[in-house]
Design a protein around this nucleic acid. Structure first.
Lengths: 209, 209, 209, 209
DNA sequence: GATGAATGAGGGTTCATTCAT
DNA sequence: AATGAATGAACCCTCATTCAT
């Protein structure tokens, strides 16, 4: 399956992928129009369905492609060696921010796929995600130096707090920079400083002085 | 505009509003079917468009209605008199949770309207929101006792941190309780306890001991 | 259901029915094109589906309409009072012939509906038919004078033989006159004579001299 | 024409023929999918059309092939030497039944081809049939002992009656045994007895006692 | 004010046929 | 000879919107 498509030369393949990604990102699974895709990609109706069978399979292929691309991107950046969970999470947060910003359409597709896909695709998509999570999460949490937390702090709760917060912060920045001309990357140092500033507050609450 | 609709007797008006709200909440703006609405409301196709002109205007009207309803709900509950920002925010968070849970459809519409509406409506909808924010935010932050923050803490940043966190926490709880049989209200005390637990960690980092 | 359609003025209704009947008769259920129907009837795509919901319902409606028309036609002609099964069957055969020839498209639809309709419609269609058969068959066989059969003839077998034969004969005549300019009705007397001639042979074998 | 196909080795040729026959038999001319055929036959799209030009020609070729196969089968069985038309026809009827049952797909194709093929192929197909009939009929009717008919019986009419009846009877049995597990061949003696029973009735009417 | 019949572009999908390789 | 990628018209069906009544 999909091999017809994957035997295409890179140029054409990317043109098609881009057209599909753009359409799915902009309008979501159900509203995305295969007509728009073929128009944009400059291919015929028939060949799109020859490649992917139907809209559903096309979408799942695109989700796979996005997930793979994004995961590769994550893997490119090895996190700094540190046992300080704060440092790790900040790094992760910033990395996430960068990747989200570098691949806004793919990121949008992946997010929407998880939240708003039709019932019958949800399970499939969730399993794709969990495969990634299971691979990545352990790296994030192994060899944390828990001794730095002050006594009385529920470390599990603390870490959950941190992650929730990082997530929320990412969303905020993405929204701020959405559609703006100037690149988020230019401001990345300023953003990291802000991250640190926010995190310092949390850190103070969690670590022993 | 809309005045023919607003001259209707309350019963009919509410039947129509309910039908539209239900449909928009369930299927989102684009997929929502005006046919479903008129079927549910027991009115004719023509009159719906006579009232609202087109689907877009109908949706904007519904968004307004939801926003107004939700804001009124916020205003019903006067927050406890306190100058402690933590207490205020926890109360706000819980209030938000309650209202979201009490008006799940309206809340869903408002959220989706902000996130997923077509390009050409986004600006209009955002401006509706900001009008509300501008009205509500001051109440939330007037007469805060900033003296409780420990020295060196950027209070503006701290408050922003808190709000981001509350928001993220709300989303988490709503997701947890989404579709579950048992009522969120039954667990509200347990949830408030958890809120406090999380907040204690943050508070410890921000307040002087 | 279907009431929108049935409220149409007779002219338009008949134009549409005719177009649909023609298309279904010519190409069968699955191959029949709703596009051809609307083109022929001069109506829009939307309104056809507004009237009938979908192709399946449209077809069932058409089958009902044909069945009703044909049954009415049968009922118009009351069979001669006779207790001779031969006479009855000849009359019935000729009547069948006439009706088939007068309504070739409806007859074709009804036949095809019974033989070649998709699995999920077969039962529905069969039940429509059986309602008609149950009503009509008793009339055909009540008060038959069985004493006329010669001894040793299995009357059940004999009658089955007759009916099979009549059926086959009908098919032959219909095929002979199919598409021919000259009308079967003009030749009906000649045909009846032939019928009698054939039947005399059988009768001689079954009746006591 | 067709010669590239006919130069194939027998194995491949039969694989392809079988795949096409199966598909045409199962779904009829128009709905038959060339895709299914090539999938089943394990050949490429291009070569199928290289062999046969287009679907229409392919179908006509298949019809020819079926007709030829079935005719050969008829010729294999030489009818018992007898001048009694009844015996001949019973044998023919049973032979027809056997062949229909032994080659259900080819038989189905031939029947459908005659009844339901598109306008523009009907004539061509009918002429193929008639060539066969003209060849076979004389054998059936030569040296009949007409002296056995009783006086006053129009023998031509009588024979036509018999043939029509045999045809109708065959259809009945095929329908009865269609899709049934137990084999028609097992019941063939019982069926022949029934044939005789029916025919006795007719014979009594036609022959001089 | 109120109805709902009517429109037609657009939705995803299938398929015989062609043609560069 | 043989492949199968590519085409595009046709398939049934949906839907916001209009308009005569």
């Amino acid at each position: 399956m999909y091999e017809t498509f994957e035997n295409l030369n890179q140029d054409k393949r990317e043109t098609i992928l881009e057209a599909c990604i753009q359409e799915f990102a902009e309008r979501g699974y159900e509203k995305a129009s295969t007509n728009s895709m073929i128009r944009e990609a400059g291919i015929s109706k028939g060949i799109l369905f020859h490649y992917f069978g139907n809209k559903r399979s096309l979408f799942l292929y695109i989700v796979d492609y996005c997930l793979q691309t994004i995961v590769e991107e994550y893997n490119k950046y090895s996190l700094t060696e540190t046992r300080d969970i704060f440092k790790r999470l900040i790094e992760l947060g910033v990395l996430k921010l960068k990747i989200n910003h570098a691949y806004p359409e793919m990121s949008k597709i992946l997010l929407e796929a998880l939240l708003n896909s039709p019932e019958d695709m949800r399970l499939v998509i969730e399993s794709k995600y969990s495969r990634f999570s299971k691979e990545y999460m352990p790296i994030l949490f192994q060899d944390i130096d828990y001794s730095m937390f002050r006594k009385g702090v529920n470390t599990a709760k603390a870490i959950e707090t941190l992650m929730l917060f990082i997530e929320a912060l990412s969303q905020k920045y993405l929204k701020d920079y959405e559609g703006k001309q100037e690149d988020l990357l230019q401001d990345i140092d300023k953003i990291m400083d802000e991250y640190y500033e926010y995190m310092e507050i949390l850190k103070y609450g969690m670590y022993s002085s």
